[in-house]
Design a protein around this nucleic acid. Structure first.
Length: 930
RNA sequence: GCUCGAAUGGUGGAAUGGUAGACACGAGGGACUUAAAAUCCCUUGGCUAUUGCAGCUGUGCGGGUUCGAGUCCCGCUUCGAGCACCA
């Protein structure tokens, strides 16, 4: 019987659908296991072989867990909102929903061919009103909540309103955009609008005037993770900084919890590190400097409080609100000119041009410790969005301050013994402090001389706190997430405006569906596309929000919805949340480290505070599958001719390398006829061959159409079958590792599957006939070795070495001519996660009427693995070896005696004395001589 | 600049501190065949030897710990990733 993979795979894919093999329900008798893939954005290009890598890895794990008796949830869906569909709509006028549906259908078709164990009954799409109703609902809850720092959790905003009514802001410790102070009476005296405006300062979803990344070409704002080096991630357009009134999520309130949570989850260290960097916790001191001749105070943040005696100037960010107040009339023109100049620069220009610039404000601050007068400067090297937007500059110990001081000829005052600041600043946090002001100066009791930097920081903190000059403060780099997008293809906000203030639509009105519009561009007046919608207002006639939510809105809590995807009453029922808890294994790329994986954790923590999610962290274990890169092939055209020269001969000619479609190249050998008909200009191409073949060059590049290196999984499935594709993708190397796709080795895996098949059927046999006798010691050893190896490997995602083990075992059993059911049947179960179609077919042939998915994973028995004898390698001083075999259970003493008595050993030891004999069980006897 | 990770044959990659290079590809040789495909067998890190046994060397570089280091420690080099006027 031939291994007819096409027939087998079609047959089982059909049966799985008919039998609902992968449907999963909340079975309380079984332990749950939740496997999840980062759901894809269905792009128009379809899947290439890189996309399924993670899906295959997680599918193997899901199938394995199921065989181990777990109730496995393994869902799939689509992150369906996205820019490409919208831009396509702008170009063609086709509704993005149509493009998206078409792309999803194509994705589904491709996915189905690979044989995943997804429960498609639970499919979700972020653009489906059934789904985004709950995205809108979550937004409403955030709007209705504030973050209490004492309880370290989100609380209903009604509590805060009550507190304002009783005590104003007295005794409040809550997350806010800026510190406000008012009394209960003042609160009550506020107008409705003013109260609403005030609450915005505290809501977790709030409308705020913030500095945003504005991308003029895309006509929308972008979140920090959507901007890299001043360019938009999508499209690569320049991004400028601009203050806009935008919806924001107070992610910063959760900064500490996001940081702490990292210690409780099983992610790679590098990914955790990336998140820690992004959160950017920094512990320092906030100090207040009085301004000379003014009651304004300058609040600064520093991690180097110890350098307070080395402050020789202050710097404000150009965007700081204090700039206007502190600029003296004499300096006004100069300052205005400077502000104008910096404002025009894009983020990218600022990054590219790091030359020192700045302007003196005309004002002076008073050093609170020494009473010294310090000039206040304005410069764009200080960022408005971090700390207080103002710094105390210590040029001797900060390289940026140093550059500034050198440029403007300001004083540089070193504070560390023996440091040389004539050429550069001394930034290291080490050394002994010196140059503290003499006793009797206004600095009073603080003398840091003789302390280490660490001690000095602590001493200064203590002094500053005790004397009411400042406080210990923790700052985070993590900013609130900007949540508005001036685009069409996204979730509408369930918000309407009354007197310019936003109010929520009643929950019963959800979902607020995305309206139809005639064109997908912004309006002529620059409003977002939704402003084109007819009747975009409430029943009462209030206008609805015209921005939509960003891509991460729909992807932030989708894992919860999979637990209960058709629930009309709630995001998910408490019962289902209790059963499925959180994701046990999440598989996806690292590119989401500072986007989706932060937002999701934030979103889940918020829902956890509400009692909707039952776990603080959404993704317990995370595996980052590597990217599959393209492996491009090249042909070499001799300049100004239509002649192509083979790779190893090209050095003799002046050639131009040209990308060639990898699909007409096999093992780097070009199919000449296919090449000629590939493109008209090559129809009469000539070749300079080596050994009658044309060898192509190759390089690793991104997989993309323009490099002609895209490999389509459909073609691989067609040629080799889904099981071969699955196993080959895993055999390529560790799942976590990025690697180029190279079809060259796929024959080896395919050959293995055929051998595996032949193990059962034999050659030419039409019926499967296996004997019922028990396996021989050798056969059982081979089997149990495999069980042990595969079980251990799957747990650690070392699928590539598992597959090697399968190959070895298959070869062993083949050469043993093993035809015994007792040995071969467990093999089918073992291979089921990897090659499910093949396993099902064999399982059926073995006489089972149920799916192999419902079989039981075999256990191994050490008994069969035990050796009778063990061959030891005996070496002397680690040099040279000879081998000797001992009974496996021989005592160390006996081995020692045997070694000493051995003739060859005695020759070695002649004239030397034995210092010690080291016996490593089952491996090595090392005799140390002198 | 800071943080993290990596470096092993022609290629992808294996190796709880214990015989480095499993497994696979590719390459070379052979069997079967009129021939090809398919299949099977042998060789395959390098150097030396090959009349037989074999010997030396070898995991980016330089040190160290150890009876023994690809693996642990210290110092470099190169590559990759993240953060980056974050005070």
């Amino acid at each position: 019987m031939e291994y007819n993979f096409r027939e087998i795979e079609q047959k089982w894919q059909k049966r799985w659908v008919e039998r609902q093999t992968y449907r999963v329900t909340e079975n309380k008798d079984k332990q749950k296991f939740y496997v999840l893939n980062m759901f894809p954005y269905p792009s128009g290009a379809g899947l290439h072989v890189g996309h399924p890598l993670g899906y295959i890895a997680s599918d193997i794990y899901a199938r394995y867990k199921r065989l181990r008796g777990f109730n496995v949830l393994n869902p799939m869906g689509y992150d369906a909102y996205g820019l490409p569909a919208e831009q396509y709509a702008i170009q063609t006028g086709q509704h993005p929903a149509i493009t998206t549906d078409k792309n999803i259908a194509r994705y589904r078709e491709q996915l189905d061919k690979i044989g995943f164990s997804f429960d498609w009954n639970r499919e979700i799409r972020t653009c489906d009103p059934e789904y985004y109703q709950w995205t809108q609902w979550a937004f409403e809850q955030m709007f209705k909540s504030y973050y209490c720092n004492r309880a370290q959790k989100a609380r209903p905003i009604s509590e805060l309103i009550e507190a304002f009514g009783q005590n104003g802001t007295e005794g409040l410790d809550v997350a806010c955009s800026k510190e406000l102070t008012f009394t209960a009476a003042e609160w009550k005296a506020m107008s409705q609008n003013k109260q609403q405006e005030t609450l915005m300062n505290y809501r977790i979803a709030y409308l705020g005037n913030t500095m945003v990344n504005w991308c003029p070409q895309l006509g929308t704002v972008l979140a920090n993770d959507e901007v890299v080096e001043g360019l938009s991630v999508r499209g690569g357009y320049p991004v400028v900084q601009r203050v806009m009134r935008q919806w924001c999520l107070r992610v910063s309130a959760y900064a500490q919890r996001l940081l702490d949570g990292l210690d409780t989850i099983d992610w790679t260290d590098s990914l955790k590190e990336t998140q820690r960097n992004w959160i950017g916790r920094s512990e320092g001191t906030e100090m207040s400097f009085k301004v000379k001749g003014s009651d304004t105070e300058l609040l600064i943040f520093t991690t180097r409080a110890d350098t307070v005696f080395g402050v020789t100037f202050m710097v404000l960010a150009p965007e700081s609100a204090l700039v206007a107040r502190l600029t003296t009339p004499g300096q006004k023109n100069e300052v205005d000119a400077y502000l104008e100049r910096t404002r025009k620069r894009t983020e990218r220009e600022r990054i590219a041009d790091r030359s020192v610039s700045g302007v003196f404000s005309g004002s002076y601050a008073i050093n609170p410790l020494t009473g010294e007068e310090i000039p206040i400067w304005i410069s764009d090297y200080v960022l408005a969005g971090y700390g207080t937007g103002a710094i105390m500059a210590v040029p001797a110990h900060d390289s940026r301050d140093y550059a500034f001081a050198k440029h403007f000829n300001l004083e540089i005052r070193p504070l560390i013994e023996g440091c040389d600041v004539s050429e550069e600043s001394f930034d290291a946090k080490e050394g002994i402090m010196t140059n503290s002001p003499k006793a009797g100066s206004p600095a009073g009791g603080l003398n840091l001389n003789g302390l280490t930097v660490k001690e000095a920081i602590a001493a200064t903190k203590k002094y500053v706190t005790e004397n009411g000059l400042g406080r210990v403060k923790v700052n985070f780099r993590l900013r609130d997430a900007i949540f508005s997008r001036q685009r069409y293809w996204g979730e509408p906000f369930p918000v309407y405006y009354k007197d310019g203030m936003p109010y929520l639509l009643d929950e019963s009105k959800l979902p607020l569906e995305l309206p139809e519009i005639d064109k997908y561009l912004p309006t002529e007046t620059g409003e977002p596309p939704l402003a084109r919608a007819k009747n975009w207002k409430t029943e009462e006639g209030y206008p609805l929000e015209v921005c939509t939510m960003p891509g991460f809105a729909g992807s932030s809590a989708y894992y919860l919805r999979y637990m209960d995807p058709r629930n009309h009453e709630a995001l998910l029922s408490h019962e289902k949340a209790e059963y499925w808890q959180n994701v046990d294994l999440y598989v996806g790329g690292t590119e989401h480290a500072t986007g989706h994986l932060i937002y999701s954790r934030f979103w889940n923590k918020f829902l956890f505070d509400l009692g909707v999610s039952v776990k603080e962290e959404p993704f317990q274990k995370l595996v980052n599958q590597g990217m599959i890169q393209g492996r491009s092939n090249f042909v070499y055209r001799i300049k100004d001719t239509n002649t192509f020269v083979s790779y190893n001969l090209k050095k003799d000619y002046d050639v131009t390398p040209i990308h060639v479609d990898v699909n007409i190249v096999s093992n780097d050998i070009l199919d000449l006829e296919a090449f000629k008909s590939w493109r008209p200009e090559y129809a009469d191409a000539q070749f300079v061959l080596e050994d009658g073949k044309y060898i192509c060059g190759w390089a690793v590049e991104k997989m993309s159409k323009s490099m002609y290196n895209v490999v389509n999984p459909d073609l691989i499935v067609e040629k080799y079958g889904a099981d071969t594709l699955r196993m080959y993708e895993m055999f390529l190397g560790p799942v976590e590792q990025s690697k180029p796709w190279d079809t060259n080795g796929i024959d080896g895996v395919h050959r293995f599957l055929r051998k595996f098949w032949n193990l059962f059927w034999g050659k030419g046999a039409e019926a499967l006939q296996l004997s019922d006798e028990s396996g021989s010691a050798e056969e059982l050893k081979s089997l149990h070795k495999l069980i042990k190896k595969v079980t251990a490997d799957i747990e650690t995602f070392s699928y590539n070495t598992s597959i090697s083990a399968f190959m070895i075992c298959t070869n062993e059993l083949t050469s043993l001519k093993c035809r015994k059911r007792a040995v071969l049947e467990p093999l089918v179960v073992l291979i089921a996660p990897f090659a499910p179609h093949l396993a099902e077919e064999l399982w059926e042939a073995l006489g089972h009427t149920t799916s192999v998915c419902d079989a039981t994973w075999p256990e191994y028995d050490e008994h069969y693995l035990a050796e009778d004898t063990v061959s030891y390698t005996i070496s002397f001083n680690g040099k040279a070896r000879f081998q000797k075999t001992f009974p496996a259970d021989a005592a160390n003493d006996a081995i020692q005696q045997a070694v000493l008595a051995d003739e060859a050993a005695q020759k070695w030891m002649e004239g030397k004395s034995v210092v010690k004999i080291i016996i490593v069980p089952k491996k090595i006897v090392n005799v140390v001589l002198r």
